[in-house]
Amino acid sequence: MATGAGAAAGGRSFSFKVVLLGEGCVGKTSLVLRYCENKFNDKHITTLQASFLTKKLNIGGKRVNLAIWDTAGQERFHALGPIYYRDSNGAILVYDITDEDSFQKVKNWVKELRKMLGNEICLCIVGNKIDLEKERHVSVQEAEMYAESVGAKHYHTSAKQNKGIEELFLDLCKRMIETAQVDERARGNGSSQSGIARRGVQIIDDEPQVQSSGGCCSSG
């Protein structure tokens, strides 16, 4: 699944795709903009937006290229989700701690992601807006227990006060590196490229190939 991972495995450099999920007003874009560009705007309608952001990190000598994909939060685009999730190494699921509904949405996405991508994907559940602690409607305990039960990690953040965001991304990257390395070892030393090449080799002799695949034509 995680074909995006460890593209240049030999050079200790990793490329990860992370999808960003969350309802309209939970502040998912603010969170990522704060992290990638250290920008924040408090206004409701702000021109400070983005749908695709990247960040380069260096973790213990390993270079990480992070590509963060925004997704549409509206319900009518819900069915399109799987197109975005595929091949992603991580997912950041954001809810607003003052909004119980947004937490329910996160639960739905978790189910879907696990169904689509299994345990390959590193999940982060993020309770944003901890600067509004007084208006909290999702209890810390409930959220953390839920995260644990689905094999996700839980984080508390405030994009406004720039709290908890660095930790969130650093932690996620470390987990994705680990997953990618386990994956590599499982596949032996061959990188993903040699896997493609091996498939290609079957096609060298075009004549026998045409013969052998003749059987599948009749199936349609």
């Binding site: 309209g24 874009t29 937006q49 749908s51 549409a72 939060g73």
Partner: peptide, 14 residues
Amino acid sequence: LLGADYRLPMDDLL
């Protein structure tokens, strides 16, 4: 339209 640099979030882009 908005008179400012605007990067489209997915909710607008789609």
